[in-house]
């Protein structure tokens, strides 16, 4: 607020103040851009401040709602806390303030009850839309069954483009390097666990879930032991995997990439060590991958060679890649 201090003419303070305001606006814009720029990196990334925009047709709903609600809260907060600080400054005994006697005012009470109601109705209307679209799992072109175990995930490909898929199912668990590094007093550096130049400590698996993009995929999610929760932040939702119950959810991925998530419901000692990795590929690549998997699994003998066709993220796949269903 002092940028105008070298000027000596009358409008000094005014210009100084507007310049200050402009600078605040510019700074907040820069901050917003910085947040936006974060989208270019893989999430999560260091110093990430906001939710990811996500990479599916639906994930924007959660992101948008988050931003709107945050904005509403910031505005209300500025007004309420602003009024408080003005009161704390103006009505201090040390400044000679004398307490007034009034203790209610029906008009303002009605106003500050009504305005929040209006804001809430708008927010409720917006989130109902997102919720209803999320609940609609019809019209899926593909089904994947996800089963939680202590402490790994199992994926069964149930059907794809109307045709049942058989014998494509496998376990997916924490990669060997992360697992070795995460042991108590391992002496290993979590910063050294990398896939390419991305740190994937605790966010990598031996065999990722491979999914096609531009396909409405229906997940049926359940568990074999305790409750887990299947969560890939880029999809915009998490869904509990509950023994004895089959939950459904859907996604439609917009762009190819590797999306990482974690179990989000406390499930025992290794709850923090059962990540989820989704490798999203084009439908053509997916069809090829699926065919290779089916072929490899068709003979009775297990065929570890199949992992050669598996996506490149499984670099650290150890001997455990033979652990098919």
């Amino acid at each position: 607020m002092t940028s105008g201090s070298i000027r000596t003419d009358a409008p000094r303070t005014h210009r100084g103040r507007t310049a200050g305001i402009r600078r605040i606006v510019a700074a907040s814009l820069a901050l917003v851009l910085a947040l936006g720029a974060g989208l270019a990196q893989a999430d999560p990334h260091p110093w990430q401040l906001n939710m990811t925009r996500g990479s599916t047709t639906w994930s924007g709903e959660a992101y948008f709602l988050n931003n709107v609600a945050l904005g509403v809260c910031v505005v209300i907060g500025v007004l309420v806390f602003g009024a408080m600080f003005i009161a704390m400054f103006r009505f201090r005994k040390s400044r000679g303030a004398v307490a007034e006697k009034w203790s209610h005012n029906t008009t303002v009470e009605i106003i500050w009850t009504a305005i929040p109601v209006i804001i809430l109705v708008v927010l409720a209307w917006m989130s109902t839309g997102g919720l209803v679209s999320f609940a609609n799992t019809t019209g899926a072109q593909m089904t994947v069954k996800v089963t939680g175990y202590q402490w790994k995930w199992r994926y069964d490909y149930v059907d794809y483009l109307g045709k049942p898929v058989s014998k494509v199912d496998y376990m997916s668990k924490l990669d060997a390097l992360s697992d070795k590094t995460r042991q108590l007093d391992s002496g290993m550096d979590p910063y050294a666990v990398k896939t390419g130049d991305e740190n994937t400590y605790l966010l990598n698996v031996d065999k990722p879930l491979v999914l096609p993009i531009h396909t409405k995929i229906r997940f049926v999610i359940t568990s074999d032991d305790v409750i887990h929760s299947w969560w890939v932040p880029e999809f915009g939702w998490k869904m509990d995997a509950i023994p004895g119950i089959v939950n459904t959810a859907w996604t439609n991925i917009s762009k190819p990439g590797t999306y990482r998530g974690q179990c989000a419901e406390l499930c025992g000692q290794d709850h923090g060590f059962m990540p989820i990795v989704v490798k999203a590929v084009s439908p053509e690549d997916f069809a090829k991958w699926l065919a290779a998997q089916q072929q490899a699994n068709a003979p009775a003998a297990p065929a570890p060679a199949a992992s050669a066709a598996a996506p490149a993220t499984a670099q650290v796949a150890p001997a455990g890649s033979g652990e098919h269903g």
Binding site: P44, H45, N199, Y201, P233
Partner: peptide, 22 residues
């Protein structure tokens, strides 16, 4: 708040280095 928005689950004893600073 930032950790949660960036995707760090609660009740985990260890985490990816992206969550290290906060």
């Amino acid at each position: 708040h930032f950790l949660g928005l960036a995707g760090m689950p609660r009740r985990i004893p260890d985490y990816n280095v992206a969550f290290a600073d906060f």
